[in-house]
């Protein structure tokens, strides 16, 4: 994997030819309003070619709107941007020819077979080579499913079919909007293996996901919240955002009063209970394990474990979203 370019300097990208080579996506102050409401707010994005770029954010953060603008189907309200060197305003049709787009609910035709769907989409892109289609089907495990109606395919196979439907024209940039939502872990792993293979052939992948372990696998992450970019770095770099804080991992069941106490702790930046784990991000050196346990009212509970932990991506994102709300 190429290493991520963490800087978002614009001075180096002024030269158009350089930008074309270096960045699959490049936006500056990209903005979209719907009925006066800011959905995407002054987004500066730089997606280097050949990377797997993770685009994260809570629901309704503006992810899909951003992707639609980048895919050339929605005009920005303001700002500028280019995709594969094509201008978002003037060259949307050229963008469409060069990119692939797989949404969570890809538009498969239920009453067409797998092979017919693939043929349809490849013809839409003007790629009518049946040999290439066959090899795609074989490579992605469709040899014995090619004549199955799309509506009868399992969720995993639908998602795979969506992927290859978007690949027939060998796009240089692939937008994947929650491509693994609702598929089982096995299929998820398979899909990610495909993504890596694609990235190795030089395809840029622009992926949105809510799964943190998927985010960890990206070369670069951008995190948006309320339409604004609030983090933009490699996964490792993003975790460094919590430098200067302590992360605690407390093994206890959900108890409302514990969570309430945690929220009132001095210097607390994040409280996140998930299942039998409570994670806290607190300003450094405010509490040691014992003092924290006392402060949470768990001092008399020997069965409750408490330990420091490395910051996870989720810690960072939960901290960031609670900060900016």
């Amino acid at each position: 994997m190429p290493s991520a370019n963490t800087t978002r300097s614009w001075s180096c990208c002024r030269d158009a030819s350089l930008r074309f080579v270096k960045s699959a996506v490049s936006t500056r102050r990209l903005t979209r309003r719907f009925a006066g409401r800011l959905v995407v707010d002054s987004l500066d994005l730089e997606v280097p070619s050949g990377q797997i770029f993770g685009f994260l954010g809570p629901n309704a953060a503006g992810k899909t709107t951003t992707i639609r603008m980048l895919a050339g189907i929605l005009l920005p309200s303001d700002g500028e941007g280019s995709v594969l060197g094509f201008d978002l305003y003037r060259e949307a049709e050229s963008i469409k020819r060069q990119i692939g787009y797989v949404a969570q609910h890809f538009g498969l035709y239920d009453n067409l077979t797998a092979a017919e769907n693939l043929e349809f989409y490849s013809r839409v892109y003007g790629a009518a080579d049946p040999q290439k289609r066959n090899s795609l089907m074989d490579r992605y495990g469709f040899s014995s499913y090619r004549d199955v109606l799309a509506k009868n395919l399992s969720g995993g196979f639908r998602q795979r079919l969506s992927l290859i439907c978007a690949l027939t024209h060998a796009p240089k940039l692939l937008f994947l909007d929650e491509p693994t939502a609702g598929v089982d872990p096995g299929v998820r792993k398979e899909l990610w293996d495909f993504f890596y293979q694609l990235a190795e052939t030089g395809t840029t992948l622009f992926v949105t996901t809510h799964y943190m372990e998927e985010a960890e696998r990206c070369d670069h992450l951008a995190f948006i919240h309320h339409g604004r970019l609030i983090a933009d770095d490699t996964p490792e770099g993003i975790k460094k955002a919590l430098t200067g804080r302590d992360v605690f991992r407390i093994g206890c069941r959900y108890e409302p009063e514990v969570v309430t106490r945690a929220r009132r702790l001095e210097g607390v930046e994040m409280v996140n209970q998930f299942g039998n784990t409570l994670r806290l991000v607190i300003a450094r050196k405010r509490y040691d394990e014992m003092a924290l346990k006392q402060a949470l009212g768990l001092g008399e509970r020997p069965e409750v474990s408490i330990e420091r932990d490395q910051p996870s991506l989720e810690d960072v994102f939960v901290t960031l979203t609670s900060e900016s709300t």
């Binding site: 050339g72 469409k96 990119i99 787009y101 890809f106 538009g107 035709y109 003007g126």
Partner: peptide, 16 residues
């Protein structure tokens, strides 16, 4: 029907 099935949206991102 295309609009309902989501295929219309898919087609919009294609060169169609």
């Amino acid at each position: 029907r295309e609009r309902e099935a989501g295929t219309l949206e898919q087609l919009i991102v294609t060169p169609v």
